[in-house]
């Protein structure tokens, strides 16, 4: 196991140091994360990959400051994480958009400290970026799942955060929309170069998107392996290298190749 793998010549953005998490429920304690250490470079796209319920979402919530580790520490820009922060936005599945606000209202939600003109400029910019033009005054219940998901990404980007935490953001979408959304996320990431931590249980998704895939074991989660995906974007998902990397992860997780 190689706990500290960082591409050379990139500043470290996030550092997870020996993090343990134990949940206490009805007097029974369940270890969820077991001595997790990880470094993520500035502008890097990292996928946390693991089976359902392995604790990868817990790790993500802890990085975002919604949970405190039982022991160990998480540092961002050298500073210990003490709680959620507008510089790092957590994108939930589409559930996170506010149904009582229009598309514009949602995107502008985090911009309350800006003067009006600047706020409107940014809203217009991000409405366009995620392709929701014409829906500015629409309320989320009238949008499709994919549109709501893009709306939530736009709301996150509008406050110009350094980091995005995405928790299985495309999990609830149909497979066609999911593919399109992956392409859009990569386009946005290449344009804005945020540090992205992306949780998924979908091996293909991880290999298509990430610079590095962090493969996690079942609960209590440990880091099994960190796989560098050395294929430039746009990625050919039928290339031998892609298949090789994907199959390597399949084997690592212990999945058979035949159904």
């Amino acid at each position: 196991m190689e706990p500290f793998v960082t591409p050379a010549a990139v500043d470290t953005k996030l550092r997870v140091e020996h993090v343990n998490i134990v949940f206490d429920r009805d007097g029974k304690s369940t270890p969820v994360l077991n001595d997790i250490s990880l470094e993520v470079g500035d502008g890097e796209f990292v996928c946390l990959l693991g089976p359902s319920g392995c604790g990868k979402s817990t790790l993500l919530s802890t990085m975002a400051g919604f949970l405190s580790p039982t022991s160990g520490e998480i540092k961002i820009d050298g500073e210990a994480v003490r709680g959620p922060d507008p510089r790092r936005i957590f994108v939930f599945q589409e559930r996170g958009v506010f149904p009582w606000l229009t598309v514009e209202g949602n995107i502008g939600f985090g911009l309350f400290k800006l003067p009006r003109a600047e706020r409107e400029r940014r809203i217009a910019y991000y409405v366009k970026m995620v392709g929701l033009e014409g829906f500015e005054r629409t309320y989320p219940p009238e949008l499709s799942g994919g549109m709501k998901q893009r709306l939530e990404v736009a709301r996150a980007l509008a406050v110009n955060p350094d980091m995005l935490f995405l928790d299985e953001p495309f999990g609830a979408l149909d497979s066609i929309t999911r593919l399109i959304m992956r392409g859009e996320l990569l386009r946005i990431w290449e344009a804005e170069r945020k540090t992205v931590i992306f949780v998924t249980h979908d091996i293909d998704e991880a290999v298509q998107l990430a610079d590095r895939v962090v493969v996690m074991s079942a609960r209590p989660a440990t880091i099994q392996q960190i796989v560098n995906i050395d294929i430039p974007h746009p990625r050919d998902i039928s290339s031998p290298r892609y298949l090789e990397l994907r199959d390597g992860i399949f084997k690592q997780i212990g999945l058979a190749h035949k159904l």
């Binding site: 709680g83 959620p84 939930f92 985090g110 406050v159």
Partner: peptide, 9 residues
């Protein structure tokens, strides 16, 4: 999740 989003922003 609504409360979390509010705190996050």
């Amino acid at each position: 999740v609504y409360i979390d989003v509010g705190r996050n922003f």
